[in-house]
Design a protein around this nucleic acid. Structure first.
Lengths: 208, 208
DNA sequence: GGTGAACGGAGCAATTCGCTCCGATTCGGA
DNA sequence: TCCGAATCGGAGCGAATTGCTCCGTTCACC
């Protein structure tokens, strides 16, 4: 099973499509041409547009998947016995997944109910991870879950130019620096007020 | 002087043009339409294209100016008595200036001799700042000047969506975290090898 | 073989962008 | 006060790109 003729090819095409779309969108930005995705997936435009009737639908599906992977990463982190290592693993995984790379899409597509729901799930899981670290005293007090989410978003931004392993490597180094900055117990206080959940969500449009 | 008729208006237009171009390019990305710059500057397309014969020329001029401001920031930091505060001031200033926001332009425009020259100047000034901090023992040893340049570049990336003061504020907070991570003396070692100058420059094309 | 669903990609219509052209406007000198 | 020249600003052009559709072809199943 799995390779039963034409229907199986459709299934495989869908997977390759999603992978290609994730790759292209997170690397080139969300306004990459649809044809680039089809080419990268080794699939014709016709097949792409039969599966997703519009570019927006594809983007919406992609957002949901990205957030589901975020939830997964958070749960994996939560499963880690060490509160700090769990949190760090979560952050590193999300950045490696480019979970925040789809953020620039905010305001340009309609947010489905499923997207809101998954986003809430992801936020709750991340919140648990952060409060556990706070209670264990391994995370500086003046940092909130939203700070960390926005930090991951910042590090998920696509690199300029053609994708290169060097760039990924550099991002790893820089992230390590930022993670060290997250522990620093005696560090200087963070400037200003922490970001509000209201603002954070408002970037995507009005909540349901 | 300064307001002597037509000639003065041209001068003023040039300044407003450069300011507008900086704003638009760093906020929207370098492929923003030229008309947006003209509109933001309150100037007609004709005036813009008389001053800069092509979009590329405007971009090149803008790059030089951005790097000159970087040199300035480095010198200001160097003038600071405290090695750490000098470095931190430099980083904060560059990020506030969005000095690295033009990096995505790498590979899409021809690099003039003036650009190479100014870039070298900027690198040397930054190097002095970093070695002074190293010698004073206020900067973790495994961090290089290029790490810091790339960190600033990462934080200079344009924010998605419409520009908002909240976003600037958040970036300030995140930068403060990263800066704390730069001091941490007993921190975990940075992963992998530091980036090489060769690779750093190669993104812009072949050196002269 | 016959059939019909799934395939791939050429092509369409609409939009966007860099850039040019030209009429309107303004200034300095006589 | 008036004129010529210089400058301004934006409508418009051609090229390129985009999202999307249409259609001839292919292949598993009967």
């Amino acid at each position: 099973m799995g390779t039963r003729g034409r229907q199986a090819e459709a299934k495989r095409n869908d997977l390759r499509l999603l992978a290609a779309a994730h790759e292209v969108f997170t690397r080139q930005g969300f306004d990459a041409p649809v044809s680039a995705i089809a080419r990268q997936a080794g699939v014709g435009m016709g097949s792409l547009y039969r599966r997703y009737r519009t570019k927006e639908q594809l983007l919406q599906r992609l957002c949901v998947i990205a957030m589901e992977r975020t939830v997964e990463a958070a749960e994996t982190g939560l499963a880690h016995a060490d509160p700090w290592e769990g949190l760090a693993l979560y952050v590193r995984t999300c950045v490696a997944n480019r979970s925040g790379a789809l953020a620039p899409v905010a305001g340009t597509i309609e947010v489905t109910d499923e997207m809101w729901r998954t986003a809430r799930e992801a936020d709750e899981a991340a919140e648990r991870l952060v409060t556990r670290a706070h209670e264990a005293g391994v995370l500086r007090r003046d940092v909130t879950m939203l700070d960390i989410s926005l930090l991951m978003e910042q590090f998920s931004r696509p690199a300029p130019g053609p994708p290169s392993p060097e760039h990924d490597h550099v991002r790893h180094r820089l992230l390590a620096i930022a993670l060290d900055g997250l522990r620093a117990p005696g560090a200087t206080a963070l400037p200003g007020e922490p970001p509000t959940l209201e603002w954070y969500e408002s970037r995507w449009g009005d909540a349901p």
